[in-house]
Each structure stands twice: as C-alpha cells, then as structure tokens.
Amino acid sequence: MSLLQVDRLVAGYEPGLPIVRGASIRVAPGEIVAVLGPNGAGKSTLIKAIAGLVLVESGEVRFGGQDLRQLPAHRLVRAGLAFVPQTENVFANLTIQENLELAGFFLGRRRCQERVRAMFELFPDLARQRALPAGRLSGGQRQMLAVARALLVEPGMIMLDEPSAGLSPRLVAEVFAKLAEVRAEGTTILMVEQNVKAALALADRAYVLAEGREHLSGSAAELASHGDLASLFLGGANR
C-alpha cells in the first residue's frame, strides 16, 4: 500500500512544454525514497508538481488515497504532505521562532507552541538562536530550520528538494543524520538529490530520472552497484 502514488505525470512550467514526461513513482509509509538523475532530468519539477507548484497537464497524484490535484497547493500541508524547497526555504525576514510559529498557525495556539518546543528539542541549535532573523543563519542552519518548519505540523510525509545543495560535506552528513532521526520517528521521506552517494546511503529505495521519466528504480543497495548509474550521470541516458 503506497502513501504517495504518482502515475504517468506530465508537468512543466508552460503549457505544451512538459519537463516531467510520464513519470510514475511510489512511496510506502515509513520509507525514505530518493529521486536521482542528471541535471535537467526533471527531478525538481517532479517534486514541485507533486507539491502543486507547477502546471500538471495529465497524470495522477494521490497521497493517502486523496487526489492531490483537487487540492489547492496551500492545503497540502494540512493534508499531511510537507515540502522543503531547495533554495530560499526559510522566511529570512522572520525570526527562527516566527518561522516555526507561522508554520503551525492552523494547529491552534496551544498545540502550535507544543510543537515549536518539540522542534527546539529536536534542533537545539535553533533553540539557542530563536530570536535571530532566519536570514542571518548559515546554510546548514537554514536547512535545519526548513526541515523543522516542515516537521512542525507532524506531516505523514516530507518532500525535500536537494537538501544537500550548497552544503559542505560535514553539513550534509549532519542534515542527513537528522533526516535518519526524523524517519526513525515515523515520518516518510521523499527527496530529490544530486548527491548520489549520500542519498543512496540514506534511502531505502530510489528512482533515477532521465528526460522526465523514470529510467531505473530499485533498492538503494541495488542502484549503488548498478553499472548504468555512472554512465547516466555522465550523459548516457539513451544508451
């Protein structure tokens, strides 16, 4: 039984110019699934299409059995699907505390404050700087705040668009260790990643996208030893 089910999705930024061309993926509850692929494969567009942020021309997106295409994008988080964009994923003009409180505005005041406290326990580094505007955080701290913002509403699943982008190897290890903790607490994760090695080390399964549709899929261990993977990233998708 899949928590997220994407079938034959066609999506892009302009009508008639799809970037995702018939991609299908599945994510089961409790899994970490990575979507990999070379630049321009449509990974980020796929995740944005699931989040309702780009034009979907055809195909199905179901989350927990619910048709997400019928929901406005701002309603997805209430349906249990949170999204962490790749860049500009925090409100730089708000403090850390304000970022978190805003994420939980629909939970009710008391519940929201409980969840903010829970996030500060999970991310003690953020708790120490709660009054600091998010724009003054380092790249790694911003990524942590973006993850905390997404987790605050206790989503069934979080989607991350390249969580390692722009981070040093040490910070990537820190962020991915935190994602492992998040999964251990029962949250399903779908992430788009360029950092193949780190992604496959964390994920249970992965899809490799090329030219807007899945080219390979399988367990992380299988894909890590797959001979086609290196050639695909070196531009051999059609071989």
Partner: peptide, 24 residues
C-alpha cells in the same frame, strides 16, 4: 498577529508561503 506575519511571509516569498499552508 498570524495574518500580519503571513503578510510578511508572502512579501518575502509567496511560493514558500504557499507550501507553509498560507492562502496567498
């Protein structure tokens, strides 16, 4: 106020505001 903060959030980044659950 939540609406006031939501206005600041939309001013900064409407797409991020949307995925945060704000009706832009």
């Amino acid at each position: 106020a939540t609406l006031g903060r939501a206005m600041r959030a939309v001013a900064h980044n409407p797409q991020l505001a949307t995925v945060t659950g704000i009706d832009v």
